[in-house]
Simulated scan of single mutants.
Amino acid sequence: MPETETEPWEYSLSIPHDPRAVTVCRRTLRLILTLHGLIRFADTAELLAAELVANAVLHTKGPATLRVRWSAGVLRIGAWDANPQPPDPPGELANLMDAEEGRGLALVQACADVWGWHPLSRCGNRGKYVWCELGVA
């Protein structure tokens, strides 16, 4: 039986440096949201998670982590990677429609209520955490 939407929860999925990790993360996220009765977020959340994880896999050489948290009516999706460099600022999505790459953070910015990043250490390794939120009032 799904928990009520008021109970907070958090999941972390450690992923290897492998392009197949994007699909694993998307499917895992959909399952988590379905089991928690939050299927209404699934399509947008999958897109956002895929972009964040794809950036982590594409722009780094090490492992990454997908983190999903529900608290106070807000779904936060984030990806940690080992590269401490800040992400490139997103361009205007309208200007990137025909681009073959470089749309990831522009999609995140367009689809999420808020997004951001900050440097982060994990298990003694430096890196960054790029996050976005859905459901912000």
Rank of each mutant, 00 (worst) to 15 (best):
E92S: 03
A50W: 04
P90A: 14
L29Q: 04
H118K: 13
Y11P: 11
R122H: 11
W117N: 07
W70C: 10
V68P: 05
L13F: 14
A106S: 01
C111S: 06
R27D: 08
K61F: 09
D98W: 08
L48K: 05
N83F: 00
R76L: 02
T44K: 13
R103K: 13
T34L: 14
G37S: 08
P89H: 14
R69P: 11
A99R: 10
G104K: 07
A64W: 01
V74E: 15
R69Y: 03
I15G: 11
V136A: 09
A99H: 08
D43V: 04
G91N: 01
W117Q: 05
D43R: 10
G78W: 08
Y11R: 15
L38F: 02
V136L: 15
K61D: 15
N95M: 11
P86E: 13
T60N: 07
V130M: 06
G102N: 01
H36V: 01
G135W: 07
G78A: 15
D43S: 10
N83W: 07
A137F: 09
E101A: 14
L58T: 06
T28I: 00
P16D: 04
V24L: 15
R20Y: 12
D98Y: 13
R103P: 01
W9Y: 11
V114L: 11
T60P: 01
G116M: 10
I32N: 06
A49P: 00
V24C: 10
A79R: 01
T4M: 06
A49L: 01
P89N: 13
D98E: 13
E133A: 06
L33A: 03
G62K: 03
V74C: 12
R103H: 09
H17I: 10
D113G: 05
A50M: 03
L31F: 08
E133Q: 05
